[in-house]
Nucleic acid binder design. Structure first.
Length: 270
DNA sequence: ATTATATCCTGATCGC
DNA sequence: TGCGATCAGGATATAA
């Protein structure tokens, strides 16, 4: 569920409360998340809270007398939530998988389906192989064109690959392609320069708009205060099978690509 | 090199 | 009301 806009929403909300806090310890409640590095986070100060692809990453200061910083990252996968202690009620205690105990307050990691991942790394480069961030200045039309020369055939599955562009998931892949007017089954090798330009523009446009709306909520996503996003009200095609296209009125179509749903308008997307 | 399949989990929903 | 089948926004490993 949480794709780039949802993780960005959470990170922006958390940052002001986490920056400068001292970490007491990381408590792991789900054995699946157990890590031998767990004890190395205590005693450090939080220097930075950023998003990398779909991950929330916390940069921690070196311990006194050392020069080695540490990176702590949370990948929310399908149902993960990062919520400060006391910011909301109603979370099920049994879904609490880990907690970062701070000098003031506590960051709780809830995750119903337990797909979420916590990584502790000694350098930022180790924080999983990530592609280009679609919102970074480096993501230009030219950069996209170059990436599209790499592996991958159909454009929609291509957009889901985190090692090319980092942060796009199933919802935004469909939305971006609708906005760009490109059929999700098109082969990337066959895209014209014009279409790549549209794809580049649409990617930034859709993701930015989603962030402005604090992400998309169907049932799972909640921000760090337990509120829903509002972008689901603005979706053009995702989960709108058989409903009229907001642009031309033709029914939206659902197909399956790589065992995942894709939604598009056959009239608007060519 | 790409694509298909299975897998990691739990919960909500739908049809009978 | 209950029950089983199906589906879900992510990602990876392995097989084909």
């Amino acid at each position: 569920m949480p794709e780039l806009p949802e993780v960005e929403t959470v990170v922006r909300q958390l940052a002001p409360f986490l920056l400068g806090r001292r970490v007491c310890c990381l408590e792991i409640l789900d054995p699946k998340l157990e890590s031998p590095e767990k004890d190395s986070v205590g005693g450090r100060t939080i220097l930075e809270v950023v998003r990398a692809g779909k991950q929330a990453v916390i940069r921690l200061s070196p311990l006194p007398g050392s020069t080695l910083p540490l990176w702590l990252s949370f990948h929310l996968r399908m149902t993960g939530r990062l919520i400060m202690d006391g910011w909301q009620s109603g979370q099920q205690e049994k879904h609490l998988r880990a907690r970062l105990v701070l000098d003031r307050g506590c960051l709780n990691f809830f995750d119903v389906r337990r797909f979420g991942v916590i990584d502790i790394r000694h350098s930022p480069g180790q924080v999983r192989p990530q592609g280009l961030d679609p919102l970074s200045p480096a993501f230009t039309g030219r950069a996209l064109a170059k990436l599209l020369c790499g592996p991958g055939r159909q454009v929609k599955p291509w957009l889901l690959r985190q090692d090319r562009l980092a942060g796009i998931g199933n919802i935004y892949a469909s939305e971006i392609l609708f906005h760009a007017g490109i059929d999700p089954r098109r082969e990337v090798a066959g895209l014209t320069a014009e279409e790549i330009k549209h794809l580049h523009h649409s990617t930034r446009k859709v993701l930015r708009l989603a962030i402005e709306n604090c992400g998309t909520t169907f049932s799972d996503f909640q921000d760090t205060r337990g509120r829903a996003g509002t972008f689901q009200d603005l979706l053009s095609v995702y989960r709108r099978e058989a409903q009229p296209c907001r642009r031309c009125g033709e029914p939206v179509v659902r197909i399956v690509q790589q065992q995942r749903s894709t939604f598009f308008c056959p009239a608007c997307q060519r």
